[in-house]
Every structure is written in C-alpha cells, then in structure tokens.
Design a protein around this nucleic acid. Sequence first.
RNA 1: GCCCAGGUGGCGGAAUUGGUAUACGCGCUAGCUUGAGGUGCUAGUUCUCGCAAGGGAUUGGAGGUUCGAGUCCUCUCCUGGGCACCA
Length: 803
Amino acid sequence: MESRYSPKTIEPKWQEKWEKNGTFRHYDRPEKFYVLDMFPYPSGFGLHVGHPKGYIATDVVARMKQLQGYAVLHPMGWDAFGLPAEQFAIKNKVHPSVATKQNIATYKEQMHRIGFTYDWDREIDTTDPDYYKWTQWIFLKMWEKGLAYESHEPINWCPSCQTGLANEDLEDGACERCGTPVEKKPMRQWVLRMTEYADRLLSDLDREDLDWEEQIKEQQRNWIGRSEGAAVRFALATEDQASVEVFTTRLDTIFGCTYVVVAPEHPIAEHQGIRNRAEVTEYIGKTRKKSDLERTELAKEKTGVKLEGIEAVNPFTDEKVPVFVADYVLGSYGTGAVMAVPAHDERDFEFAKKYGLRIVETVSGGDPATEGAFTDDGVLVNSGAFTGLSSAEAREKMTAWLEERGFGKGTVKYKMRDWTFSRQRYWGEPIPLIHCEKCGVVPVPEADLPVRLPDVESYEPTGTGESPLADIDEWVNVPCPSCGGVGKRETNTMPQWAGSCWYYLRYIDPKNTESFVGKKEEKRWMPVDLYVGGAEHATRHLLYSRFWHKFLFDLGVVSTDEPFKRLVHVGLINASDGRKMSKRWGNVINPDDIIDDFGADALRLYEMFMGPFTQNIAWNTEGLVGTRRFLEKVWKLSPETRDGQQAMESRELEALLHRTMRKVTEDIDGFRFNTAVSGLMILVNALEKESRISRAAYETTLILLSPFAPHIAEELWQELGNERSIFLGSWPQYDPEKLIEDEVRIAVSVNGKVRDTFSVPRDIPEEELKSQALESENVRRHMEGKEPKRIVVVPGRIVNIVV
RNA sequence: GCCCAGGUGGCGGAAUUGGUAUACGCGCUAGCUUGAGGUGCUAGUUCUCGCAAGGGAUUGGAGGUUCGAGUCCUCUCCUGGGCACCA
C-alpha cells in the first residue's frame, strides 16, 4: 500500500458508514453511560473552532466508553429560542423559525464534518411545539404547586431589549446580552419560587456522589448566598404600634445599634407619622430612577433621609433610635431593613460619620474613633448582661433571648432571588395560562397543550410590558377553560433558559407523546453520567435545571434528585490575539477551513492536545502541523510492519505499550486529554523506530488512538482486513506485570545534586547499588575525598550521598 | 473588599504526588529532499561559561522544613475568572 494519507477521502467515507450502520447505537448493552454536551444556541454565524472543543472531548469519552462495552447515550440538539433569531426576524421580516431552521442546518453540517457519534434520531429543538408542549406542561405543574406566581414588584428592565430580566441575566448591573444598564421597573410578571429550593440547591452540592468541579460548586454557593442571622422586630414609637423587622448576621452588636435604616421600597417609608413627607417622597423618587448600577457602583457616597417623627425601639435596650430611609439598603434582600451599628459595620460607619450619628463600641478589638469600624468577632463590651461573652456565644444567647420574648428569631436568608420568568418578547414558549375576569388565572387544560406561538405581523417588542402576542386578538381572546366566560391568554413568553431546564430528559425518550419522558426509559438512563459545557452557565442554566429537576423529583416523575452526576467545564478557545473569537474582531476561525487544510482527525487531536481541557487557551493554527505530522507518522507505520509475521516486541517496548494503555485510559477518564495525546505520540515515536511491529501491538495502538482520531484509526483497522468497525472491538486492558521494565535508570546525587546516572537491573540489591554509585568518577570528584555521612537509597530512582 | 483557579524555556505545556525539572508539540538553527512550496525527512535546541570533558544558574519573589522541594509550610508580588452596599 503506497497511498498517501488523505483525510478528505477517508473522513466523509467513515462518517457516512458509521451513520448508516448505526455503529454507535448499542442501547441494549447492560451497563449504561449517558454523556451529554450543553446544547448550543444555533446562531447565524455558524460554529467557530472554539465551539467543538467540549463536543470533541465528550466524543472521545463516548467512543472509549463504547469500546469498554457500555451502552452509550450521546445526543445533541438545539436551544433555539432567544433574542438573536428574533432580532434577525425584525430586521428581515422573516419568521424566526425560518432563520432558526437554516442555522440548525449549518451547525449540523459543520458538526458532521468533525465526525461526532451523536444519535441524530434523538435530536431535539426547544422551539418545536412537540418539545415545548412539555416545557409548558412542567410550568403548569409548578403553577399547580404554587411555585409559579404573579408579581408586581419592580424588576430588572432592559430598555434596549425591551424585556424584563432575571437577576441571573445581569452582568455588573447591565443586560448581559446587550450591555445596556438595567432599570428597575414595576411590572406584572411571572416568577418561579426558586428560593423555596435554596437550601436543597445548596446542601446537595456537598453530596458525595455529586462529582462536580469545586470551582463551579463554589460559584453556586456564592450565588445562593446563605446567611445565618436573626430577624429582630423594632417597635416604632408611634401610636399605631407599627414595627420594623430587620435582618442581621451580627446580633452580637445590637447594643451598638444607634439607628435603623430601611430601603426606599420599604412600606414604613410611607408611614403616616412621618413629618417630612415631601422630603422623603422626593428622595424615594430619585432613587427609583437610578439603575442598579448607579445605586451600587456610583453611589460610593451614601445618601439618605431621616424619617422625622418616627423612632424605633431597640428591644434589648429599650432605647429609641432614629429611622432613616437610604438606598444603601436593598429592598430585595433580607427584610429590606437593617439595624445600623456604625462601630462594627463599614457602611453604617460611613453613613453615621456623614450624618453625625452616634458610634457605640460593643465589641472590643478595634477603636472606632481612630480605625473606623471593627468588623471582626471579639469580646462584647457595653452590652448589658451579655458583656464579656464572645461574639459567637452572644449571638446564640441573644437569639434565645429574642425568641423567649417574641421579639424575633434566628433566620436564614439567601442572596438568590426567585426567578423572574416572563419575557415581553415574541420568540419564546407561550406561558400556558388564561386570565379570566371571573375565575382569575386559569391553566390551559393539558389536552390543549401545546399553546402554539401564533404568527404575528410584527415581532417588534411593544415596550408596554406585554409581548407582541398581545396584538393578535384572535389568539389572545379565548373562552375561559373553567367557566367559559371571557378569557385572555397570557401574552408574556418564557425566558431563553426555560427549554434547557429539562432537555436532557427528553433525549432519553424523544418521541414520547404521552409523557415528557417514559418512566422506564428515565430510570434506565438517568442521571447523566458526564456533563460538559461552559463555565458561564454555573449560576444560570446549571442552577435553573437543578431547580427544575428537584421539582420533578418531588413530583415523583424522575427518579434522581440531581440530574448531572459529573460535571466538567470546558476552557474557552480564544483567538490568537487573546481576545474572544467574534465577528466583531474579525478573528474567527471556522472549523470547516481547518478540516479542509488538515483534516478532522488533526483538528480533533489538536484541540485535545492544545493544553489542559478546563483552561482557556489561545488558538494557534500553526500548532496543527504537529498533529497532522503525527497522523502522517501513524499512517506510515503500517506498510513496513503489517507483514503478517509474528513479530515480538522487546520487553522495553512491551512495557511502553502497556504503560500507554494505562495512561490513555486514565487520562481520558480524568479529562487529561493533552497528556493522553502526548502518551500516544511517545508510543508512536517508539514504534516508528522499530523495524517490525506485531499485529497485536499495532492494533492496540490503533484502538488507543481511535477515540481521538477515529477516521484514520478505522481506515487503518479495516486495511488490516478487519471487517467489523474498530469501535465494535474492545478497549485494551493493560497487564500490571508488564508495566515494569527490567532495567531502571538510577540517578546518583551528592548532597542533593545529580552527578551521574546509570542503568541497573530492577531488582539489584541495595548494597550493590550503593557501591556502584560510589564508583562513579564524577560522583567521587564531587565528594572531594570526604566519607559519606549518609547514603539514602530510593529503589528504582535515586541514590543520594550526603557528605 | 470577599471567594475560586493559576504563575515552569522563544511559545502551548509535562513532571509517577517529596526522588534525574523542562516529557510531548510548536517555533527556531543546520543539513537533506523538491522545479517550487511545506502539512516531507535527519540532527540539534532551558539559560550561561567552555573546543570538549564538565561547571554554574533556573519552576513569579523572599524565607523555612528535608538527605532531597516545581511539589509541603510562612510571608509576598502578579495574572485570569466569579461575587460584590447581601447587613
């Protein structure tokens, strides 16, 4: 065989054969392995070389797992609802589904060329009514259980996208999509009670069978933001016996509370007893107009207004303290009111200085007069009966004291908010509810699902808090399913993240019309054994889907309470200039071009070899030369060596072969693809130097290579005369006995510095090793005639002579 | 400010977990091959002194533990990511 290595011919050939023969659909094997990628949003720009990195990794794993005998489920689909398709529709007056279909076709074609093992019979598309029917169904279940509620609280509003946003959709107080600063806007919206699950979302992160990277778990912990503290009721010194409940994590400092602050949204700011009403109203009006960004970043200078005529009573001291309204207190966290302790809180300290308020030290350790607030724990002073206790003891005793007297109780608060779930846009799942004048909110009956997205004249957002759907009278006006009276459909749609909350369940049983997933199928495949995707989803998709999954678990329709057993995040591939790959910078590299020049196998190998998988890395097309050269080397390995004779490997080469079996297996399992590839390179370099290789060794090498470079491996495999696919063979298992080499290289060091090395038989006695070490000329020179004080021998490694 | 991750050749990066630092690959240098290209082949390549043998230095920096430290401990500097007036 003298043919040249031509990926252009062999790659499409095998892709087609695998697909036709169902090479990767062996679902009846006893042991299952479910390996999942975060499915992409099919944008109009197509894939760049960064996108497939994670897909290649899961494909490598999927291929190895299949060779190891598992039934492997490896599906792909499209998270296709979202703003870009809608914006494209507005501009070009085509239905978003048209552009979406085109984009999906492009993505799919690009993916095909890379040679993935996806089962396209299980392909799903979140915008398909047969799919979103079940997204709507799950929403209705949540509504039934009281987890979806209508709210009129001010929400994040992006004036450019003209839609409400969830907290998770913000980046530094701006819209994550378009960068426009977000405003607070009171608006009717649907909200999911995610906080109900906060404690479980947090504590289950510590489950031992949840094999997630610490980094991602930590991000979720921070996002959920659990604080233990106390809610304390401060009575108001007013006639109506009103009170303000504050939340604090530092109850131990309460004797130093010299005022109380409420957020501008707090109802007490409307209290009748306020004498400077005009001033307060003006202040609140001003803060309302500020964006979150302004309220945080720019408001370094704290502002506030004293509520004249209102005083709060500290339950511990019976002392009356003034009450302020100030926007450094957030209405959306805790109780929207805090007890201010300037001596032990930096924010309160700053505010107190500005407004000339008293500063009372109650924890020793600092000096408020000279050093500012002392925020550490310490020993209590000026704290009545609690003086002398440590902060921790005091918190415990003071909480008990509160609870006995009914002034408050120990509480836990979370930073995470409920999920603002409605969008005032077109291209999303319609929320399947009907507003009836008589019955209120009525769910669309299950039999009437899906509620399909109707065609509209204009996709333009209305900006009124309703979606463009509101203009379609014949769609909006429906009889109430409950009383038959006049009803109007809910016109808000679900957010981009809805469809991805449960898609991994649909792959398991994608054609089921009776249920979102069959019970038997669900039990067979869940949980997902390996999930790979971008770290940017740590506090969004990965939180949302855990929330939905736990809900489905409580509902009894799924059998696991965590969806993803093992999670690994993929490091980004940036452009060679270090920036993100983007149309905007003109630095995008298309995988099609790389495949044209180097082949899919070279691309796959390179992306795995570039560097540690989870790390961000800059693209470098020059590097592909190396993986292409490597494949050429593999290609040439065959002619001289496949002579049908029973060649025998040297003990040394055999050891290398078995070490490589172990290395490649363990490295793939551990996501150390870069070192797995380098191990393969070392093996091939060694084989290249041999005049003859046994068929067994050659086949083993091909199998080890096959997950990374499947096309060339399959081609060479079948060149050998094998008729079944290489991927229907079995993964090699190393023999621990053969890992060990007979000869070992020993280093000799004098005082820790290596002075010589020599080879000895592995089981040489220690004494002999010592004497051989002392014979070395160079070693003796460095001993300078001195007697060894001590000789440390590490068998098989090193002899260190101490003089 | 808080929480993660990480600093190793010209570059991407290895290092059996305390035992020969710089594997593997890119690039570079020299040579071969080709009409010409390089996605071909051979040799060399941490820096530094030396013709060589060999010496010295070196894993962001400073200390420490140890026969022995990239790896462990203390302090410190820098980079990337996340959170951030969360009481």
